[in-house]
Design a protein around this nucleic acid. Structure first.
Lengths: 214, 214, 214, 214
DNA sequence: AATGAATGAGAATTCATTCAT
DNA sequence: TATGAATGAATTCTCATTCAT
């Protein structure tokens, strides 16, 4: 229970949830991420949560409502640090070298990812099928992060630390590499043993210098 | 109809399919990739295919059967060139430089991807939920490709063209970058205008030299 | 609010109702008469009344209880004047001519009908399905009115003002004509413009002399 | 079964209905007319019809669909004779006297009414709550009949057989009297003994000459 | 007295699958 | 081989009613 409790707190820190509501959320996250949204029945969630099926619908008008109420707050969490911290730190010269910025970014995104992994899985699964989600994701998340990252990139380009290339391409390549790492690490091969510090270092080095021998 | 016909031919080149079977497959691919496997009803597929509901079950014992019969052949297509061509070409010194190999790889994978995009989407969507699929994919595809690629990497490393790093990490980083490109190009932002040759070149350069200014 | 307040006063003049109770009654009348008893949910009534769902059941043990508590007092109102006034007035020679009696009857029934129209609708709707209601209605209302009216009819027949015909038939024909008028006027075509005085006159004339040309 | 079979034939003479469909219709008519549309559950209908609940929804997309498919054809039956027969007979001088026309009208409407009484009940019950029904009824039935009747009335007025009064009022008074009779006869007091010929005669006489003593 | 969360039975509807034709 | 009516279990959702606060 403690881990799920944590997840809930992470996601719904401000909102007041009744005890049953929490149980419903936990059960729903578990089932959705294990079997997918469509393949999960509300009766199953109710049983797992130990509540009556009607109780679910008292709190969430529809099944989709439940899904959105779980996934939507994740979005905020995902953009959090970009909005608040990183950008300023770059400007404040806290991350003088690109490497430092990348490392820090990977590290703090990894934490969120681990804690909210099941919800992230749900989000990834459902984005293609839920227009509301997709829109929210692209408008609020992808775009914002992209803009923010583009600015940061331009900053480093002006300092002569990054090659001249349209910021969008730079962003795509860098983000892709980072997500590729996190995805391999936590989704595709979580069962393998990973030396996280080493792989992070490698990923950063890769992004900076590629795979070719100098 | 011609495009779907093409897809079908690509996927089922050896097998004999009746006319109705083809229609069912086409309809199923369309629906599965649009709404997901679980959210698609067989009656919907039947309607779209213009056949009776019973006809589907004459050809495919269950709904999952239908899914597997669509997705399984894709796997073979995905590993095709690695098995047959590329490796030998590398050994034959056809791709003397890593860059050439990467470029060729990206190019011919892109073609398959475009033609079979809907089926690829279905595969990606369902891998997490269908143990048979996951197993098939990991054992037959991911592992094979990884092994093959590792060998190729070692070859280039021995020739002093790639940095010294465990081949798995090299593979991960390279594959991730390529898939990241293809994924951005065809799944996330197909609506943007892409200069494919340029972006391929950039991706290759990125893999080789990274983003840092020399 | 004032019109509903009026309706409530009309229906529950003697009883003490709390503020919430009044709101519940008003909301229930509105919903029942708009959508029918079965198709109206208690939660809907609660919302419309601005009270908690539980509050309804504090005052009315069941939903049907609520219905009966609304409809039952209407019955008393419906027979009111027959019991109290009209009959005596006829005996007292206040209505010497049948025409005067009919006119007065139509007029004062019309008032009640307008004020309590929504409740009348509910009664009409539910009589076929609620045995308690039907029984109450037939035993206490229909029969009483019929008896009373029969006496009046006999009175006028004895005075030679009405044709010789079994009083039940006379009653049926007369009542039918009056109700037919009120029903057309207020239920079927309330949106048409009606010259009430003229139509009342026509109805009375029709009852007395029919449609044939003398 | 024979009586219901008859009703079905009356209502759906042209359409091809499967055996189960007929059973569903019969069961639905029975239940709807006994308990009302909203208070009848589809599972109840299924049980009564001896079919699986799913079977109902194979033939009728929704419960309301079922209702409409039962009630809609009634409308056609209701206006039938006015459209086809009566009017022409009047013009053809078959009904030279108003009395004859009235008598014939009452008689043939009574037959339809008896055979389709349960469906008529459903129609009356649901018209206030189903806008589609209401509209259909007013536009297609009420209006048509009214127009037709108005013409007939004018015809008799010109022949000097009916008093001068706006045809709408004449129609209202006459129709009201006829329906009042049929309603009393079949809906309100079917349990009483009725001498139909006598009461029809009385109703006709009433319409022509009223209740006053000449 | 009033609330509103919780319930569980039951509502309408969907769905994968079967089977007689 | 193909059909599509039929099924009955399961699904989402509603609702009257209860009860702790």
């Amino acid at each position: 229970m403690s881990e799920e409790e944590l997840m809930i707190q992470q996601l719904f820190n401000e909102e007041k949830l009744t005890d049953k509501q929490k149980k419903i959320i936990v059960a729903a996250i578990e089932s959705f991420s294990e079997k997918g949204y469509s393949a999960t029945s509300t009766s199953e969630i109710a049983k797992k949560a130990g509540v009556a099926e009607g109780t679910i619908f008292r709190h969430y008008k529809t099944k989709k409502d439940l899904l959105l109420s779980i996934v939507a707050p994740l979005m905020t969490k995902l953009i959090g640090p970009f909005v608040v911290n990183d950008f300023n730190k770059v400007l404040d010269r806290k991350y003088d070298r690109v490497e430092d910025f990348l490392k820090a970014t990977i590290e703090n995104r990894r934490e969120v990812l681990i804690k909210l992994l099941p919800v992230v899985k749900i989000l990834l699964q459902e984005i293609p099928f839920q227009p509301e989600l997709r829109e929210q994701f692209f408008e609020q998340i992808a775009k914002k992060i992209f803009d923010r990252v583009s600015l940061i990139i331009k900053g480093y380009q002006e300092k002569g630390e990054l090659i001249e290339m349209p910021p969008e391409s730079v962003a795509r390549l860098a983000i892709t590499s980072i997500l590729g790492y996190l995805f391999s690490r936590y989704v595709l091969f979580p069962q393998l043993e990973w030396d996280d510090e080493l792989e992070t270092e490698r990923t950063v080095q890769f992004i900076m210098h590629g795979l070719g021998k100098k």
